[in-house]
Design a protein around this nucleic acid. Structure first.
Lengths: 362, 362
DNA sequence: TCTCTCTCCTGAACCGTTTCAGGAGGCCAA
DNA sequence: TTGGCCTCCTGAAACGGTTCAGGAGAGAGA
């Protein structure tokens, strides 16, 4: 026995399938008694409209896809993404739409994209021009780019360069000579690409070093996965080679926290022996001990803004926007040496959520 | 101009739609030249089969739903769920299926369930008999229960009671007289229900107190949301009333970490002034300082097992199972007073992943 | 009584695929 | 030349809803 369909309900309620459909979607066009008879019958039979059939005709499933270029398991291991999804979730909850995480299926992002039953995508960490993203435009699937470049599509970024610059400048201003930089581990092909989050953050650090006339040696930049263990192992390796940096810049908080674990294990006190500045300001940055100095970016806000832009595009209401949110250096305990007073420095330029930077024709 | 459909490709390649379908799904039944002509045409037009249409007929969409009784934004704020989803993601990645988080839509879980374009559900924190869950069985939608009771469906639980018991017993054995318990905040209706994770953990604590002949006063059990702030505020409030517990049992690590933040702010040293034991053993438990003693449960494994059980059910391969995974008290720095040696105690009984506890007919 | 209007409902087309029986044509053996 | 068997392809019927033009019947007004 198959699932109960609209036809079953119609038969039992002695009406046409069209009437059943109407009872659910536009009860006004039916008499009250008929509607209640139909609904009662539907309830009794346990009928629920088939989402696929409904989507086929209406071209709406009520699901938003969040696209990551990494495996799902990697995504959820990263508190940054959790916080981002938290922001996305605030809006999808509000609008009662579903949230589908889309990741490469057996290595193929294209396949995963094609198979995803969604109305549109929030794309994280890929540029609009990326090979997997471009086909979406041709197919007319709406999307919003987060942490990536875009010309036509709406996008949300933060001012990574400025934030990184502030962080490095602060440490150099404290007189640190040997600063270790923990960068994103990435495929060799992308290593020297200046664009993207990784490139922008490193560029910010480099600008500060250049300005301070401090050389940043190639072996002072260690690339490592974005995880506790990534940061832990990276610092462990450096220490095991006998090097004793006095400060550490990490392109992500979770790396920084991992490195602090390694520091502690090796008898280094933070911040006395090793000053640390992370990036992102994940919720944990205030829960760690010592609390983590970091470059704040509005992660949840980013998720909210991106999702609102996508929904707006789905509704054809409002223009596309390229938005850049601000970053801000937040000094906490991992940089307080007693000498330097706690302070906050504005990093990025806030062009504002409502600021239309470049609008594109639909 | 609408999206490009199978008909467009067929026309341009001078074949029938059926041939295009075959080219994608069963190329063997077509000649090589025809297949390559069709695929080339499809590529040129940017054709991708419509997931809804495909799902309608094949009754498979390639998406698994993970159902939470809480808002999406709440879910992602909780590292426990992140770790669980990490486990789920390992399997869905492997099998190239999508992952849809399903949460109450405008307060109605039933509506969210009905609208979700998925092949089956992993249901977290709800019993099989729950009003929103029961209809799924009638509709023939496969599901697996996690952290909830089930008679017929497959389920995955951990031995909460035993883990909680071990934790409380350890603290009482250390001679702590004033132990504060941080429990789950929940709707009043569920408050005294003995079942469910919350009930089982509290029951474990209570058993240890009873055994040690130490009374557990009603105002020693504070119910608070599962979050850093929840734990922080709960302890803050207790301290502000002038009470100075010497030990703290939290039903979740994230609460425990929040409480430690409050303790530090109030000048209490952990573990010297306040011993702390959490629950779950989230990844952060080893990254906090001091590192968190806690009741370990295999969170990722739980996600993996549940997902495998669901996929197995979708494939009609293998029986249903009710699985209980073990818990284990893990002592780290938040309980080490110097007097007590570090040690590990087995908590739950491991009935094993492959152990068939109760099998139910399909 | 006839016509008009309004309410309530139905029939049929359609959304974009997949599936499957079967047709067209070529080739080979008898 | 006929029959049979392949290979390669097509036509049409699903899948389970929604939509929309229009029909039936009741009531009102002339």
């Amino acid at each position: 026995m198959g699932r109960v369909t609209i036809g079953d309900v119609a038969r039992r309620a002695r009406v046409s399938p069209a009437a059943v459909s109407a009872a659910f979607n536009d009860p006004a066009q039916l008499s009250k008694t008929t509607v209640s008879r139909i609904l009662a019958t539907a309830l009794r039979l346990g009928y629920a409209p088939n989402p696929h059939a409904r989507a086929l005709l209406s071209r709406r499933v009520g699901v938003l896809g969040v696209l990551f270029p990494q495996a799902v398991s990697t995504v959820f291991a990263n508190p940054f993404f959790s916080a981002f999804l938290e922001g996305v979730g605030e809006i999808t909850d509000e609008r009662a739409v579903g949230l589908l995480t889309v990741s490469p299926a057996h290595g193929s992002l294209a396949r995963a994209i094609a198979a995803a039953p969604v109305d549109g995508f929030v794309i994280v960490g890929l540029d609009e021009a990326h090979d997997e993203v471009a086909p979406l435009r041709r197919r007319g699937v709406p999307f919003v780019i987060v942490d990536g470049d875009s010309e036509v599509a709406s996008s949300v970024n933060v001012d990574d360069e400025a934030g990184a610059y502030q962080a490095a400048r602060f440490l150099l201003g404290q007189g640190h000579g040997d600063v270790l930089v923990l960068g994103f581990h990435m495929p060799p092909a992308d290593l020297h690409q200046p664009r993207g989050v990784a490139g922008r953050r490193l560029a910010g650090y480099r600008r500060a070093f250049a300005e301070a006339n401090v050389p940043l040696a190639e072996d002072s930049v260690v690339r490592t996965p974005v995880s506790l263990n990534g940061g832990d192992e990276a610092l462990e390796k450096v220490l095991s080679r006998g090097r004793r940096p006095s400060a550490l810049l990490a392109v992500s908080d979770i790396m920084a926290l991992g490195a602090m674990r390694a520091a502690r294990r090796n008898g280094l006190r933070v911040p006395e022996d090793l000053a640390v500045i992370g990036f992102d300001d994940i919720p944990l940055a205030t829960a760690s001990h010592p609390t983590l100095s970091t470059v704040h970016q509005p992660i949840r806000e980013k998720g909210r803004v991106a999702t609102r832009l996508l929904l707006r595009e789905l509704d054809d209401s409002g223009p596309r926007e390229q938005i850049v949110l601000p970053t801000e250096l937040v000094l906490r305990e991992t940089t307080s040496t007693g000498k330097a007073p706690l302070r906050r420095e504005k990093g990025g330029s806030y062009r504002g959520r409502r600021t239309l930077t470049r609008a594109a024709a639909g």
